[in-house]
Design a protein around this nucleic acid. Structure first.
Length: 150
DNA sequence: GCCAACGTTGGC
DNA sequence: GCCAACGTTGGC
């Protein structure tokens, strides 16, 4: 069982949207490293931190759970989608998505500022490479973020 | 809205 | 297969 962190821009899709819908397709990931994590390592039952990016206070805001493992992202075949990829075919899909379900909203959001300042959080990719949109979270870092949310 | 950092593309 | 140019992300 693994832990993850996924980014979303709340203007486009927020934790509140996920809460309202219950379950959603986490699609539109167009970064190879992020895709590989989803395709190779993400499993049903894994816990997922939802992180709000490109907003006033970037922060981890809630928790979701993987309810369907990686499958081809339908948007890559859809010419009308902004995620359309002409190099992807049904035989050889390039991108994958997963389904995730809402679990909870943190009592207090844990801000990027807090995370960066916290020396107990050691591995989290968010601290360094700012651009990865799906990243693994160690058990220790997961626990530390949970404790900051109390 | 700016700009640094980083990923991707494409010419050689 | 290298690397410069370009595009995108995302914090500030």
């Amino acid at each position: 069982m693994a832990n993850w962190l996924v980014k979303t821009e709340p203007d486009a899709y927020s934790l509140a949207d996920l809460k309202r819908e219950g379950t959603t397709r986490w699609d539109g990931i167009r970064n190879y490293q992020a895709r590989n994590f989803m395709r190779d390592d993400m499993q049903v039952g894994d816990r997922v931190f939802i992180y709000h990016s490109s907003c006033k206070v970037p922060a981890v805001v809630g928790i979701a759970e993987v309810v369907k493992a990686a499958y081809p992202d339908p948007a890559q075949f859809d010419v009308s989608s902004k995620y359309f990829d002409e190099k992807a075919t049904e035989d050889k899909p390039r991108w994958v998505c997963v389904d995730i379900a809402y679990r909870s909203t943190l009592t207090k959001p844990v801000t990027l500022k807090q995370i960066k300042a916290d020396e107990a959080i050691t591995e989290l990719a968010l601290k360094k490479s700012g651009r990865l949109s799906v990243m693994p979270v160690t058990d220790a870092d997961w626990q530390q973020i949970i404790s900051l949310a109390q």
